[in-house]
Design a protein around this nucleic acid. Structure first.
Lengths: 144, 144
DNA sequence: TTTAGTGCAAAAGTTTTGCATGGTC
DNA sequence: GACCATGCAAAACTTTTGCACTAAA
């Protein structure tokens, strides 16, 4: 994907969510569009600077906050003390992360709700939400 | 549970795992024994100091690291940038956390493995481990 | 003109590390 | 003596906030 394509896709995503497409936001989101897996705020900032785009670290954090708030990106925390961000399909889903190469796949369907409701009820809980992260080894890494 | 009981339970847990029962470790672990839910490193440190026990914050962190390494306690991260620790029963299990009072229950049985294997295989992954955290409202808070 | 976004620097917060000290095997 | 644990302080690191400035509605 070219830089121009990434920027236009970023613009489209922002427009679709009614978020003003400011320069900083387009830069950050375009960088995420080019990233098939997930990236940290620091990592995104470094890449943008390396690419010659003048964007502040605070703007990267503020932008990611806005993007998460509008559901344009998801925040994952597979290592403590550090959040990773990723563009995600809509709806409820979970992630499959390769422990070797950090590739991320989405698990489209989630068939946990019914089981969860029963399991929670045993403890007197009403389950309202859940987060599942699956670690594994992807086909590429298993072969190597 | 009295302070003496907590300390002796802590000692037992350390012995059972072959971890040397030094003063700092017994203090930290005894504090976790008294805690039905989970606690942060900072919180444990504060409580120990308030109780008059002279223990350094670094020791609390180092001890928690050792305890996690030996599977004596679990580290949960339900808020980013901060880990919570908790004594856990052995074996594979998941947590049910009340969003109101932060009470934590263990979900004893995990019936996800079969479903997960199939779901991962669709993406060419071999699932090796998973982590599930369920948020909900406990009976007490639902009533209030 | 009023609001929203941005860059920079400083601050806040958690966790780790260096180093000297004291206890244990 | 060698090693491990500990306290303290300093450092590292991620993330947030204050403030001045700019651009946009």
């Amino acid at each position: 994907m070219t830089a121009r394509q990434a920027r236009s896709e970023a613009q489209r995503l922002l427009d679709a969510s009614g978020v003003r497409a400011t320069p900083g936001r387009v830069q950050v989101l375009a960088e995420l569009v080019r990233e098939p897996n997930d990236a940290t705020a620091q990592g995104l900032h470094e890449r943008l600077r390396a690419r010659g785009e003048r964007v502040g670290l605070a703007t990267v954090y503020r932008t990611l906050g806005v993007l998460v708030e509008h559901g344009i990106v998801d925040a994952l925390s597979h290592s403590p003390g550090e959040l990773c961000y990723r563009i995600c399909g809509g709806g409820h889903h979970h992630h499959l992360v390769c422990t070797e190469c950090h590739r991320v796949e989405e698990l489209g369907s989630c068939e946990l709700d019914e089981w969860l409701e029963r399991a929670a009820a045993v403890h007197g809980f009403r389950a309202t939400s859940h987060r599942l992260e699956v670690a594994g080894v992807c086909a590429g890494c298993a072969g190597a």
